[in-house]
Design a binder for these strands. Structure first.
Length: 417
DNA sequence: TCTGGGGTCCTAGGACCC
DNA sequence: TCTGGGGTCCTAGGACCC
């Protein structure tokens, strides 16, 4: 038996924990730069605001219904997520943290799922203030489907492939199934596969031949045959990236290089935190040419002779890419730095045949000191001179909540009368 | 005028090996 | 006129997830 625990309107719920005045009000949480909607309260959903809606398109609704618009605060959401996962792990042995607001559990098939669901829901609510919906099923895919139904019911739900649930499966559009995205939905529909029941009864080998093994697994999972096991240990990350859109286009090379340096610094910090090294760095840009509306993309990768997590080396490499590929008269709108080919820090790593990095061997100590200072006094307290000083590119964030749970100075004060 | 950020997995095709 | 068979590794791009 699998269960999926899913937090309701997670980002909105996190905000509401510290803002009881927001209860029963329509609320949306916005993406970086306050650009589009990434979470909605039930009240906002009822007003017809779709996920991903650009803010400027819903201005009239915001005014008309006095919708609260909040800037996203991932520091808060990640910390609350960590607390929720801790509660789950205290209740259950087999927990797979699937995303910031979801976890899969593997349970004894004989448990009373309704009781178990109640217990988990109440415990998480009690310790974190976040409401959850919990779905059960013999496979992850079915548990996931049960969760979406649990949300509308307001209590836990169970489904499997047997006849009592066929009615429900027939009423479920294939687009609701985990792993079936826009492309697959369109294609399946052209073959007359429109709902979960249709897909469940499709011939797996036909699906394999016409699509791929991923689609075949979905069919088998719908039939109660588990193909996606619980992954208990968090596997090492395979890539790490830092990308941002700018509030205004950037045309100045030095400016761009400074931003890249800042990202390089954060990337190095993250890598060291994970005890990993990278040996391939990619710089990705999104831009338009002056007077042209169309968007262009550019991507350049440098493969390092020696894997690294040294900030100065990363900065030097990404700045070199920009130096070589920067084009003038271009409006840069987004930049990203991606580290791939990650490996464990302590594992014997690739060495260049002609190693010229001896001169850099003292740098890890510099990084170590920087990390300690930044951890104690906040990220950015100390940084290389090459990093962006100007705040020109800093994202718009008009209504961001405090870091209630991770910063002493942001603690909520309560006055008793 | 303004449309996010961070990931994973799979596949096809090319280059290469004996 | 006729030109094998069986592999591996790497990469770019697509599709999907939250």
């Amino acid at each position: 038996m699998f269960a999926l625990v899913d937090c309701n309107n997670f980002f909105v719920s996190c905000e509401k924990v510290f803002r009881p005045d927001l209860e029963e009000r329509p609320i949306v949480v916005l993406s970086n730069n306050d650009s589009c909607v990434i979470a909605r309260s039930n009240e906002a959903k009822l007003l017809g605001i779709p996920m991903g809606a650009p803010l400027f398109e819903i201005r009239h609704l915001i005014k008309a219904y006095n919708i609260e618009t909040l800037s996203c605060n991932f520091e808060l959401y990640s910390d609350i997520s960590r607390r929720i996962m801790n509660v789950l792990q205290s209740l259950q042995k087999n927990v797979e943290i699937y995303s910031i607001d979801e976890a899969f559990l593997e349970l004894d098939a004989t448990i009373n799922w309704a009781e178990e669901g109640d217990k988990i829901h109440h415990q998480i609510l009690k310790y974190t203030g976040i409401p959850t919906s919990i779905g059960f099923g013999p496979t992850k895919t079915l548990a996931k489907l049960a969760t979406s139904h649990a949300k509308t019911l307001g209590s836990s739900y169970y489904i499997d492939h047997t006849p009592p649930y066929h009615k429900f499966l027939k009423a479920t559009s294939i687009s609701k199934i985990w792993g079936v995205g826009a492309k697959l939905t369109k294609s399946f529909k052209q073959h007359g596969i429109c709902n979960a029941y249709d897909l469940m009864t499709a011939d797996p080998s036909w699906v394999r031949r016409n699509y791929n093994i991923v689609a075949e697994r979905i069919v088998r999972e719908l039939n109660g045959f588990s193909c996606l096991p619980l992954t208990l240990v968090q596997e090492q990350k395979k890539s790490l990236q830092l990308t941002r859109s700018f509030p205004h286009p950037i045309r100045d090379k030095e400016n761009l290089k400074q931003i890249a340096a800042r990202f390089g610094m954060r990337l190095g910090f993250k890598l060291r935190e994970l005890s990993q090294k990278t040996s391939a760095l990619t710089v990705y840009t999104q831009h338009s040419f002056s007077g042209d509306q169309s968007l262009f993309f550019q991507q350049h990768t440098v493969v390092l002779a020696d894997s690294t997590n040294t900030t100065s080396v990363i900065i030097q490499q990404v700045q070199e890419i920009i130096e070589n590929f920067f084009s003038p008269n271009t409006d840069y709108q987004k930049i990203g730095i991606i580290a791939t080919d990650l490996r464990e820090e302590n594992l014997p790593h690739k060495h260049a045949l002609f190693d010229s990095s001896k001169a850099l061997s003292n740098k890890p100590n510099v990084d170590k000191v920087m990390d300690e200072i930044n951890k104690r006094f906040g990220l950015g307290t100390i940084h290389p001179l090459s990093c962006a000083q100007s705040t020109e590119w800093v994202n718009k964030s008009h209504n961001k909540s405090p870091a209630y749970t991770t910063n002493w100075t942001n603690l909520v004060q309560v006055k008793a009368q």
